[in-house]
């Protein structure tokens, strides 16, 4: 259901002139759906109905009130007159930032600190996820995990067609990711979407061929990758100091911040590792 909502939201972004948002939303949704399926697979199968009618009505009333308020607020904002503050960004994107995709130029050049913080937040989240799952196969958690047996398990755990198709898709997806990454400054695209495409390609390997097979062939330590992603972003920012420019100033020539992708890969891979 959430993926349905996500699909419609991204279609809305397409309709209202936001191609970058649509691309990001749709690729985020793919990974989110896989994560939610993983949670559904391991969490209890049934949710007992909450029986107290008064509490249910109270919560429903509260939710409806909040929803109505937010909806009214949105409508009020949408129908107001509008004075943009982005004329500077639109005017300076090409001469100042060196790119024609204004959204990505804002993210990388005008608001570089924001994006740097975003990279660090994602890195922290990824390391936390890694820590939570790394020792999940020991202690009380492992016992619970072993006690979950699925009556509806398929006999053929790794269907041949799926395995072969995902292995062919991996290099293709990597190529597409590089393409999206490099065009991000001028056309819809960018580092985060590229990173998600790589992550999806890797997750498909885990899903199709099993965790043991994929983990054996993963030569890059995901923890090191998270660290490297944050370090590259920081160094790209520090490089501008050597030329007497403020932190995170970028010129046309050096490859700047859209390295968020590096972190994404690492955050998505360990989170899927509990699935098999």
């Amino acid at each position: 259901m959430t993926s349905g909502v996500g699909l419609i939201v991204s279609l809305m972004f397409v309709q209202f002139s936001a191609p970058d948002l649509a691309l990001t939303q749709i690729s985020v949704d793919v990974v989110t759906t896989i994560l939610l399926l993983l949670a559904l697979n391991l969490l209890p199968k049934t949710t007992p109905a909450e029986t107290d009618t008064a509490g249910r009505l109270g919560r429903g009333g509260l939710a409806a009130a909040v929803g109505l308020g937010v909806g009214a607020l949105t409508y009020a904002i949408l129908t107001r007159d509008f004075q943009t503050i982005s004329d500077y960004h639109l005017a300076e994107a090409k001469p100042g930032g060196g790119g024609t995709n204004v959204v990505n130029v804002i993210l990388v050049d005008f608001r570089g600190f924001d994006t740097f913080g975003e990279i660090i937040v994602l890195g922290i989240a990824a390391i936390t996820i890694f820590a939570l799952l790394d020792n999940a196969l020991r202690g009380a958690a492992a016992k619970t995990l072993a006690s979950i047996r699925h009556p509806l398990q398929s006999k053929d755990a790794h269907p041949l067609i799926l395995v072969v198709a995902t292995r062919i898709l991996l290099p293709l997806a990597l190529t597409v990711a590089v393409f999206i990454f490099l065009r991000g400054h001028n056309e819809p695209g960018g580092g985060f979407i590229a990173g998600l495409v790589v992550a999806i390609a890797l997750i498909m390997q885990y899903l199709a061929s099993g965790y043991a097979w994929a983990a054996q062939r993963a030569r890059i330590d995901s923890q090191a990758m998270i660290g490297a992603g944050v370090a590259i972003a920081g160094l790209a920012g520090l490089a501008s100091l050597f030329f007497d420019w403020p932190f995170l100033t970028s010129t046309y020539t050096h490859v700047d911040l859209p390295l968020i992708g590096e972190i994404e890969i690492a955050s998505a891979v360990p989170s899927i590792s509990a699935s098999s």
């Binding site: 994560l35 939610l36 799952l133 999940a136 509990a274």
Partner: peptide
């Protein structure tokens, strides 16, 4: 998601 999963598996 991972926090909920780990919490359920622990307890």
């Amino acid at each position: 998601v991972v926090l909920a999963l780990r919490g359920f598996l622990e307890t």
